[in-house]
Design a protein around this nucleic acid. Sequence first.
DNA 1: ACCACTAACGCAAATTATTTGCTTTTAACT
DNA 2: AGTTAAAAGCAAATAATTTGCGTTAGTGGT
Lengths: 188, 188
Amino acid sequence: MVFRENPRPGGRSARVQASVHQAVRDMLAVMDRAEVTIPLIAQRANVTPSTIYRRWGDLQELLADVAASRLQPETEPAEIGSVRMDLQAWTEQYADEMSSGAGREMIRDILSVPDTANAEKCSGYTQQQLRVLIARAQERGEPFPTLTELMDYVISPIMYRILFEQPPNAECVRGLISRIIPEGVVKS
Amino acid sequence: MVFRENPRPGGRSARVQASVHQAVRDMLAVMDRAEVTIPLIAQRANVTPSTIYRRWGDLQELLADVAASRLQPETEPAEIGSVRMDLQAWTEQYADEMSSGAGREMIRDILSVPDTANAEKCSGYTQQQLRVLIARAQERGEPFPTLTELMDYVISPIMYRILFEQPPNAECVRGLISRIIPEGVVKS
DNA sequence: ACCACTAACGCAAATTATTTGCTTTTAACT
DNA sequence: AGTTAAAAGCAAATAATTTGCGTTAGTGGT
């Protein structure tokens, strides 16, 4: 199978992919994830099950694919005030979204597949958002952590808590941020 | 079903559990994870498939259960020299084991199930090991990070890299540790 | 503009996994 | 020892997955 790469943007292949993705999203919105099956998806997307099996392999991979595309951010981090405040607001929202039922399901779907492409894509989205904040800080001359520091000391602990412990609350998130940007730096 | 809790330690229930777990371990050792199925496990464990289905629900949950039990540490962190060195050695081994093919599979199995009990168990094992080191440092009067610091700034970044990016190498692990214990503290 | 080519899809039969109702076994507790 | 309830076995019914083969629809060449 050559699939996946270069699904010509107007071709039948692309239409089937869009239709199947949409079917999955619609179904996840109205029914429990556990009762979503490939035959059902196929029916709603007006394709045959074998098409889905041949293209994605199994339900896990399809769900991982859909989840990754759903995690792609649509907007840049909001501008609230200082970049530190922007970071705090963005991070709290990130933590909330990832901690939610739907968020956790998407992460699980992405991680439960052997192929790491979707997980990397997901981390890439996060880094892309953080880079916007870093550039903003640089532009304004505000002191700001590096990408690595943000990933290691803010994002990673949040994700670990979501995956292995209890989802972090706002206070916890603020604590992680204070640790790498002293409060004193903020001008309110 | 009441299952799970209190499987009397010599009873039939416990024997079936042990037999199924062993069958899964044996099979994972010799065949690809993708071709392990419940009917096959049942055959090797000398039980009927329906027993496994009724008890664990599906393959994912069974694999998660087995993976969690395999991640339970058997020994305490080795005593190398200073507690800082012990920490470094233990953490490098932890990162290696978790980054390995088998390690990553176990983590995936644990995280791909909605029930978070096994993930929490897994995090609990890690904390238990770290607490041994913390106690050791306290006993010897060596300065040492808190459990939260270790989890947030060492374990979490390692796990994030394994799950979402590239597995960390030894140098990276050492870097994470240096960040919370200055090198200078070590007396060689 | 037409034709040839091939990747991707549809269909349907064969296989395999999962669910479920009912029966039997086993260990815990009188 | 006898009773009982949880857990296992058995087998039929259902559902999902795989696969071979024919068809369709975009792609590239003339």
